[in-house]
């Protein structure tokens, strides 16, 4: 038996990039995000320039194993209520969740790579370095 969540007031300004505000119970939540943030001194956009093949997008992220040890848990709800008067969230971004209610499993993964590109100051110092 899960508890009842009561929130009188919720205000979320911005919910962006596949984020969720969930009101009510859920069973399973799986979230995944891959972001490539390219900042340039000069304005230039080409979506095919960097394929998403950087190691950060491929390497598995080690997570602690679930149920490594058999656990026998007894939960007693003396008061089956979670009461919150007000929640104020400015931003929810990049596959995040604000969840009012109970859930069973949550799995989320976020991979972000930043690349910055500046113009060369002089031509004789032209050196091009690029990340793997």
């Amino acid at each position: 038996m899960s508890r009842l969540s009561i929130v009188h007031f919720l205000r979320a300004n911005a919910v962006v990039f596949s984020s969720v505000v969930q009101i009510g119970d859920s069973q399973e939540i799986r979230l995944s995000a891959r972001a490539l943030a390219v900042q340039r001194q000069l304005e230039y956009v080409d979506s095919r320039e960097f394929p998403l093949l950087f190691p950060i997008f491929i390497k598995p992220i080690p997570t602690p194993p679930i149920d490594a040890e058999p656990l026998c848990r007894h939960t007693l709800h003396n008061c089956p209520l979670i009461a919150v008067h007000s929640v104020r969230v400015i931003g929810i971004s990049s596959t995040s969740v604000v969840h009012i209610g109970s859930t069973k499993t949550v799995e989320a993964e976020s991979r972000v790579k930043h690349i910055r590109q500046l113009t060369e100051r002089r031509k004789e110092h032209a050196s091009s370095r690029r990340s793997d």
Binding site: L31, A33, I82, V84, V87, S93, S94, S96, H99, V112
Partner: peptide, 9 residues
């Protein structure tokens, strides 16, 4: 709340 984060009530 960003980058695979969770606020759970």
């Amino acid at each position: 709340v960003a980058s695979a984060s969770l606020v759970l009530i």
